[in-house]
Design a protein around this nucleic acid. Structure first.
Lengths: 205, 205
DNA sequence: CCCCGTATTGGACTAAAGTCCAATATCCGT
DNA sequence: ACGGATATTGGACTTTAGTCCAATACGGGG
């Protein structure tokens, strides 16, 4: 079902790459190593679960740039920076942009493993939340334009008669749309409907 | 009404303290300077809006310890660290624990001002959110035990008859409680009630 | 012992929502 | 032009929820 989480490693130093891969594999983790950020950026599938262990200083694209590029591509993979010559402003920058951790070489095996585990866990919960959201969106997508309008009014707490007036139709019609909305959204109470739409950012106030 | 936001500065170096205070005051900010973390910890009122500019290395309590102490006290004041001799692990640690920024001395005036402004703004929105939550909690506090139970069932999407059965009473009684709940919570639709309780972490699923 | 807050219940309706069955009226694409 | 999706509306009820007025019951406090 859900593929195994993978630890992606990007480092231009082949020796480091190999050593990191060995450490992680010894902890029963699936590892995929990349020798350059470009390679990772091109080949990485954002749908793959896991986390990224990223060297900061690399030729071509540095770590922060790769982080930005991934963000731009919509990837939300948790990133753990690893660097030998970083400075404070860079680390702070990385953390502010959402990096999960920022470790310095030489890194203690246990520190890295701990961080990787936390990253994988966070990716897992983020993906789960995302999946639920996608599910809601999928249901929303089955609604017709009119049904969507009615939905908005319903989760705004309006009465059918009010909705009817605002949409230029009669209460009876609204009831029909409303029933279809409940059915398509797979809920059996307005309360559930409110919770769903709330998560999807609809209706608010 | 809402008091002016204040920038609290804590630094054991009197010269730095004075210079920072002057810079911030020149930007029309209210400033309160403290020469030691203990002093700040004792005298700071968590209700005061603003942010904290904190030197990392200080005798007695260092910056991170003060951060922890404030957190333990329930203070959510945004913290901007300022340090001359910090290292990456410390900065990362501070950021992970919620620091808003971590700057290095000598700091560019503009960097600090920018950060302080962001911190004040974040404090403002956090306080606003908190105030709304407190308001909801206050209303919840006016409910009787029974009314609270009914509330839970209502925002779970149950019918009055179901609630009645589970609470060992009749539908009529539930209606009365329910009406009182709506009145005390100051809402006029179940939809609003769901949104309120959602924010207060009640009912979920 | 009486008053107040709380919990309950009845009666009598009004309002709102939901359910079935059925019937038009468009618009769109094959 | 025909079939399907979409939007609308009616009629006829059944369920739920909400509203008013009233009344009983219980536990504390004053």
């Amino acid at each position: 079902m859900t593929p195994h989480p993978t630890v992606f490693i990007v480092d231009d130093d082949a020796a480091v790459l190999k050593s990191l891969a060995r450490l992680l594999r010894s902890a029963r983790l699936d590892v995929l190593a990349f020798g350059s950020p470009q390679e990772f950026l091109e080949r990485h599938d954002p749908r793959a679960p896991g986390c990224l262990v990223l060297d900061l200083a690399m030729p071509g694209l540095n770590g922060l740039e790769l982080q930005a590029a991934l963000m731009a591509k919509g990837s939300t993979i948790p990133i753990i920076f690893l660097t030998g010559h970083g400075d404070i402003p860079t680390s702070v920058q990385a953390m502010k942009r959402g990096a999960l951790d920022f470790l310095t070489k030489p890194v203690k095996d246990d520190d890295l493993l701990q961080s990787v585990k936390a990253a994988i866990e966070q990716d897992r919960t983020a993906r789960q939340a995302r999946a639920e959201l996608d599910d809601i969106q999928a249901r929303l997508a089955t609604l017709t334009q009119r049904e969507r309008e009615v939905l908005i009014h319903v989760v705004s707490g309006q009465l059918n008669k009010e909705t009817a007036a605002e949409l230029g139709t009669v209460e009876k019609t609204i009831k029909v749309h409303r029933a279809r909305v409940m059915e398509k959204m797979k809920v059996d109470s307005v309360v559930e409907l409110v919770r769903l739409t709330e998560r999807a950012g609809i209706g608010g106030k």
